[in-house]
Design a binder for these strands. Structure first.
Length: 260
DNA sequence: ATGCCTTCCTACGGAAGA
């Protein structure tokens, strides 16, 4: 089973790129972030035509997350992260697909730091930690995947010294990510490629992609039940080179659940 | 040192992204 995460940076403007990539890689489950689309403009029909059913949590102009499944209907289990009823951002959606619980998240960027946006990021991270601990306690096959807006270590940044004070790399958020992983989650890419420089995002400007001046901020975390099923993990760099593409690349893993 | 690009919107400039 192939499961991917992709910050599309606008699902409607990016639909040709998204469909081309899904045609090429044929992922079974896709978690999308930054839809930048209200619910009523989500391209359900086009995705159905490509063979995918979906659940989504949209918002006008910003944010927005969705889960797609090929030849299956995702069973919505949660829309919105618990812990703050006043949070109006569409940043979390969760569904069950083939007996696996899939949480799709778009963690706040947090810049400028320090400031109100950085405080919101840290609070959101705390809520995610609390909820992730509940998922671990449930002892079910689960994944928490998406755009975490965190580079976990120096290995995940093309120029760590330039990013020290950035909201994506400050010690507080790196610790928050490390503490989350320490609950028992496995960072799929890093687990299979412990020493390799791997990026998932490159800025649009200054030929960042051509220079491979990137960041690893899109992550797939596997619960203890799922981790032993992992067989591969890779960044799909091809789509990042296409015209009118996202500044992120899809990240895809393969898992082989035991036959029952 | 820097959003140098790109997206979105009752658009034509501002906000946001990382």
């Amino acid at each position: 089973m192939k499961l991917a995460t992709y910050n599309v940076n606008g699902i409607n403007g990016r639909l040709p790129v998204l469909l081309r990539w899904m045609e090429e890689d044929a992922p079974d489950i896709v978690c999308l972030q930054e839809l930048k689309s209200p619910d009523e403009r989500f391209p359900r029909r086009e995705l159905q035509h490509a063979g995918y059913e979906a659940v989504w949590h949209g918002q006008k102009s910003w944010n927005g997350v969705a889960i797609l499944a090929r030849g299956a209907t995702p069973i919505l289990t949660r829309r919105g992260l618990p812990g703050d009823p006043d949070d109006s951002h569409s940043r979390y959606i969760e569904a069950a697909v083939d007996g696996i619980l899939v949480g799709c998240l778009y963690l706040p960027n947090g810049n400028p730091a320090p400031g109100a946006k950085f405080d919101y990021k840290l609070r959101w991270f705390q809520r995610l930690q609390a909820y992730a601990a509940e998922l671990i306690a449930l002892d079910v096959p689960a994944l928490l995947v998406g755009d975490y807006n965190v580079m976990p270590t120096d290995l995940d940044v093309y120029a760590p010294e330039r990013w020290r004070d950035d909201a994506l790399f400050r010690p507080e958020v790196r610790k928050a990510y490390a503490d989350l992983v320490a609950q028992g989650w496995t960072d799929a890419i890093r687990h299979l490629h412990p020493t390799k420089r791997i990026y998932t995002f490159w800025k649009y400007w200054r030929n960042s992609f051509e220079r491979d001046a990137g960041l690893r901020i899109d992550h797939l975390l596997l619960s203890p039940t799922v981790a032993p099923w992992l067989t591969s993990a890779s960044v799909r760099r091809g789509p990042r080179s296409w015209d009118h593409t996202s500044d992120h690349a899809p990240v895809m893993i393969e898992i082989e659940p035991p036959a029952d």
